[in-house]
Design a protein around this nucleic acid. Structure first.
Lengths: 123, 123
DNA sequence: CCGGATCCCATAAGATACTG
DNA sequence: CAGTATCTTATGGGATCCGG
């Protein structure tokens, strides 16, 4: 059982940590921009969400996400694989078969991303 | 002292909740896109971060964020105020003075946004 | 079935100048 | 000081066709 303490007391420590980080990489890339690069754009959060349910094939994913075009899905998946959010497993068969699933790092993000969506939907 | 239980056990409940939400607003707007609209873009997370430290004036905010132009800052602040993330307080003086601060809803988001950045920086 | 290649448009974001 | 106005450039995202 893992608990994340997000009380105000601990928040101060956490924020101080980020202050340090932001100073260190001054002018370069802050944790905030890093975060937005990871999950920014119209589709990535949704794709992560789908893959958190189960590993999926390309077409399956496309139907699940909804209105996304093949091109965009392909592009996003590629970026997300590069960012180590998802794994791409290719089966060398005909017709081709590719399965996508979350990496360990990707799985780590699911709880916080869930909380994020939870918060956003309270607006 | 508030604890958010993000264990796998509770994650299932949380994710089931989102599944319900996503079904309900099928074709319209999912919580994931709602979330990305709130904090998406290059600057909003950074602005939220700054305002979580203290309320700030326009120029102060611009220096703190860094390379943002007045135009972008103005635009983002306007959107964020519309989204109920921040409050805009105008002092009717000369020279003009405007203070920005988080709303209650905005403050609610800080812990999860902090966790988000924390996670992203572990990549 | 899983994409790549190409072309196109809408919006995001930046630069600069100006004002109550 | 706190913005607007105007213009330009970069990127996100879409449509269609093609290929292993």
């Amino acid at each position: 059982m893992v608990y994340y303490n997000l009380s105000s007391t601990n928040l101060i420590n956490t924020t101080n940590y980020f202050h340090t980080v932001m100073q260190k990489i001054k002018g370069n890339e802050s944790p905030t921009t890093a975060a937005i690069k990871l999950i920014g754009g119209k589709w990535k959060l949704c794709i992560l969400w789908q893959l958190s349910q189960k590993k999926m094939r390309f077409g399956e994913l496309q139907r699940a996400v909804g209105d996304i075009t093949q091109q965009m899905l392909s592009k996003q998946l590629k970026e997300m694989a590069k960012d180590n959010l998802i794994k791409r497993k290719v089966y060398e068969v005909i017709p081709p078969k590719v399965e996508y699933s979350l990496t360990a790092f990707g799985k780590l993000g699911i709880p916080v991303l869930t909380e994020l969506c939870n918060w956003a939907s309270k607006k």
